[in-house]
Design a protein around this nucleic acid. Structure first.
Length: 542
DNA sequence: GCCGTTTTCGGCCCGACTGTTTTCAGTCG
């Protein structure tokens, strides 16, 4: 069991305690424990072995007991006991934004609502207005949020899809199924996946594979299955037509049309390259086939190894889980020339943002490490909050002392389009700001972007000579690939950054590479394809 | 439930926001 799953159990316990009207401080104790442990991305076993559970503040005897029990048996008897008094589905209501334990209890006690469907029906029938503390706006926002949840149902982010693919491919290895490839949306590297698709060439083991997935027949060579609530499609083919069908099932339909795929008069190919060749085109990687605007020519697409700078990394100084030394080791191991360390600024109190005093401590540590490190240069950066009025979280005197400043919006999302646009435009005009972080603030499948005139932001970034981030966190992927051509056509360079808070996050740049290819970015368009000296020359103060 | 200690019980993070109220409760990060 992962520590994160165990923390979900603690959150559930807190929820049921709150339903029962337990002491607020007792409930908070569970929330505190979760908060203090949530920065560790490890298994529950490791958390015990590394003495993390034992030494973390806010994790006392009894919460430790719960975690111990989870480690040993996978369940919590406390949670099981608490659950007994309520319907199983009640906790699903916590998925709805704006609903906490208090409101859920009211809905349950007064209207007997215990599921999202029941709640939706009650809203439609105007029943919530009768309850004290609920009004029209609350009812509307609940309905809206339910709609969102239903829209998102069955869809998953790319990195989760990759995990599922991985686990299914592990199974096929055990079975002995050899000729299988992921195809369709995942192979195109779409940012949100609605079905998981495989192409398999028929062999003896196919039946075993299909029964393992409990797949049912759709048509003669198409099977469907449901894996943990997600749709899986399995297309079957034969050895000779494998690449033809891989090409076809990868799509997109628009792309196939664009290259006149249907005009191919033979079906036996030995690679996708051969298919492009016989159609008279250079090879186009699957990522780029979703972007119908791109020319059918060879692009100088970036690869992971072309990224020379690891830009936008958080350390334990703010809300990251690694020390600067550990980040340095990671960078060395992965052949980066430089790291731009970007912890949060002081206003980001929820993320332990740095004030001027702690900044100085960090700078000293960076200087010390730089004097020892031969291979990797650590640069002093900051992810500086853009305050609601467009000013920055440090004054120019402090800002001037960073090598490079990334400016991002983290608060007050609910502004008008005009207000938000001028807020960001003002920040971009600060001469020490070099990169705009996650420009739209969206969280895929969870939070809409804030209202923003992105065209205007791109125009200003261009005229000010600033870079825009392609945030590689699979929840963000922001700046979206659909805006890449617009940005580079104005001369903007894009920064591919992991916005990392852990080692795992640092590997997210691979999703950035996927999106960059999709957007039609070439190495020359990407800031961190520059070596350290060129980066300093073009994007650093001093 | 956790912590800290003036060691056995009292205090516990907090500000912003929203929507409901008519002065505040609930939620969120």
């Amino acid at each position: 069991m992962q520590l994160k799953d165990a923390l979900d159990v603690l959150e559930e316990i807190a929820f049921y305690l709150e339903l029962k009207g337990e002491n607020v401080f007792k409930i908070n104790a569970f929330h505190n424990a979760v908060r203090n442990l949530s920065k560790y991305d490890i298994s529950l076993n490791d958390a015990f072995e590394k003495q993390i559970i034992q030494n973390t503040k806010g994790v006392g005897k009894s919460i430790q007991g719960v975690l111990e029990e989870l480690k040993n048996s996978g369940v919590s008897s406390l949670l099981e006991e608490l659950k007994k008094d309520f319907p199983e589905s009640l906790i699903t209501l916590t998925k709805i934004r704006g609903l906490g334990a208090k409101k859920i209890k009211k809905l349950y006690d007064e209207l007997g609502i215990s599921s999202i469907d029941e709640l939706e029906q009650a809203c439609i029938e105007n029943k919530l207005l009768k309850i004290q503390g609920f009004g029209e706006k609350t009812q509307n926002s609940i309905l809206e949020n339910i709609k969102k949840i239903k829209d998102y149902e069955g869809k998953l982010l790319l990195h989760y899809a990759d995990e599922i693919v991985e686990s299914i491919l592990d199974e096929t290895k055990k079975i002995g199924l050899k000729k299988i490839s992921v195809t369709g949306e995942i192979r195109l590297r779409k940012k949100v996946i609605s079905k998981i698709e495989f192409l398999v060439s028929e062999e003896k083991t196919l039946e075993k594979f299909l029964s393992k997935l409990k797949a049912t027949k759709n048509s003669s060579n198409n099977f469907a299955s449901n894996f943990e609530g997600y749709l899986v499609h399995i297309y079957t083919t034969n050895e000779e037509q494998f690449y033809f069908d891989l090409f076809r099932t990868t799509g997109t339909e628009d792309f196939l049309k664009k290259i006149s795929f249907s005009k191919l008069d033979e079906k036996n190919f030995y690679s996708e390259e051969d298919i492009f060749k016989s159609l008279g085109y250079d090879y186009i990687p699957p990522q780029a086939r979703e972007n119908i605007q791109l020319d059918l020519r060879k692009y100088d697409f970036p690869e992971l190894k072309d990224l020379k700078g690891l830009i936008h990394v958080h350390s334990i100084y703010s809300d990251g889980s690694n020390s600067i030394e550990e980040i340095l080791e990671f960078a060395e191991k992965n052949n980066y020339e430089y790291v731009l360390l970007c912890d949060h600024s002081k206003s980001a109190f929820y993320a332990n943002g740095l004030d001027e005093i702690r900044l100085k401590e960090q700078w000293k540590e960076i200087d010390d490490l730089n004097s020892k490190s031969k291979k990797v240069r650590i640069l002093k950066g900051i992810e500086c909050d853009i305050l609601p009025d467009g000013s920055l979280d440090f004054d120019d005197d402090i800002l001037s002392q960073f090598d490079c400043v990334i400016a991002s919006v983290h608060s007050k999302f609910k502004m008008t389009k005009n207000e938000m646009t001028s807020r960001i435009v003002k920040a971009l005009k600060n001469k020490f700001v070099k990169i705009l972080g996650h420009p739209t603030g969206r969280l895929l499948l969870s939070r809409e972007p804030y209202p923003l005139d992105l065209d205007e932001v791109i125009n200003v970034a261009a005229s000010e000579g600033k870079s825009i981030e392609l945030n590689c966190n699979p929840h963000r992927l922001d700046l979206d690939w659909e805006y890449h051509q617009k940005a580079i056509s104005r001369g903007i360079k894009i920064t591919i950054s992991p916005d990392a808070h852990s080692f795992e996050d640092m590997t997210y740049v691979k999703y950035g590479i996927d999106m960059a290819i999709k957007g039609g970015l070439e190495k020359k368009n990407i800031v961190n394809c520059m070596g350290v000296n060129e980066f300093i020359k073009n994007f650093c103060n001093k």
